[in-house]
């Protein structure tokens, strides 16, 4: 009914990417703070986000679209705030919010275990470790190196160029089988275990792939665990060794070369 003459998606995308570059350049710390630059940067960032939302594909259902839009906006806005915050503590807190958004996106994508694991492992462990280090090492007030950045214009341009190229190539994805639709191994395995022949796998591909990682299945996490400890058992063992090596290595580095100022040296001598 209301015929709004929108420009073509390519034009919107180019405008959004340009606005994103300008917004990042205005928002990144550049020494002299100006309220105008901050407001203009926020406005341009909002315009860029609106452009990306406009060029996004319709998911089909209003509820799904709303949920996906909200969680992805939370993730993207908090991610932008992470890199433009002057205070590293604020950066860490914004990163926690970005993690919440990312885990929401993962949940929408049907990865329940990963959505929860992202919150638990990242926000619960890694981010707290970051905050501990900040508490140990952060000088009072804003440090001068937090108020300037390296080449903000060139970096914003590089990031926007990468973003434009990626979104361009993502927009060209199509359901053409010769292009992107690989036959799913999980579907083939599921069909094979059910005793189907190869032709049925091709015919019932869509149905079988929907069953293999069905997020509504009660045992989806159990299937993920079966995949992880079945096909990827060796990699799990290697990851365990990696964790052990990282633990031992970090303790060794801290205790051997720690504290060149020598403040703790008497205590260590007394201990040994």
């Amino acid at each position: 009914m209301i015929a709004v003459a929108l420009p073509s998606p390519g034009v919107i995308l180019a405008g959004a990417v340009t606005a994103a570059a300008a917004s990042l350049w205005l928002l990144l710390p550049r020494g002299a703070e100006s309220r105008v630059a901050r407001w203009l940067g926020s406005l341009l960032g909002a315009a860029a986000l609106a452009g990306f939302v406009l060029t996004g594909r319709r998911l089909g259902g209003l509820g799904e679209e709303a949920v996906f839009l909200i969680v992805s906006l939370v993730a993207v806005i908090s991610g932008a705030a992470t890199i433009v915050s002057r205070s590293p503590v604020y950066s860490a807190i914004w990163f926690a919010l970005a993690l919440a958004g990312v885990s929401g996106v993962l949940l929408v994508l049907g990865a329940q275990f990963l959505g929860v694991a992202t919150i638990v492992v990242y926000a619960g462990a890694i981010l707290v470790m970051f905050l501990f280090v900040l508490m140990l090492a952060q000088p009072a007030g804003l440090a001068p190196y937090d108020r300037v950045s390296n080449e903000p214009l060139l970096s914003a341009l590089a990031g926007a160029t990468l973003l434009g190229l990626l979104t361009l190539s993502i927009g060209r994805l199509s359901a053409d089988p010769s292009c992107c639709q690989m036959p799913s191994k999980a579907a083939a395995m599921a069909a094979g275990s059910a005793g189907k022949s190869g032709d049925d796998v091709q015919a019932g591909d869509a149905i079988d792939t929907a069953i293999a990682t069905d997020p509504l299945a009660a045992d989806q996490v159990a299937r993920l665990g079966g995949e992880l400890f079945g096909r990827h058992l060796l990699a799990v063992e290697a990851a365990g060794v990696l964790l052990l090596v990282a633990l031992v290595g970090s303790i060794a580095v801290v205790s051997r070369h720690g504290d060149p100022s020598g403040e703790l040296a008497p205590a260590r001598r007394a201990a040994s």
Partner: peptide, 18 residues
């Protein structure tokens, strides 16, 4: 978008933690 934001951040910011 998240990847590009992280790229811009790692290129520009000077704080090691950030």
């Amino acid at each position: 978008i998240l990847f590009s934001l992280g790229l811009v951040g790692i290129l520009t910011r000077r704080n090691l933690i950030v």
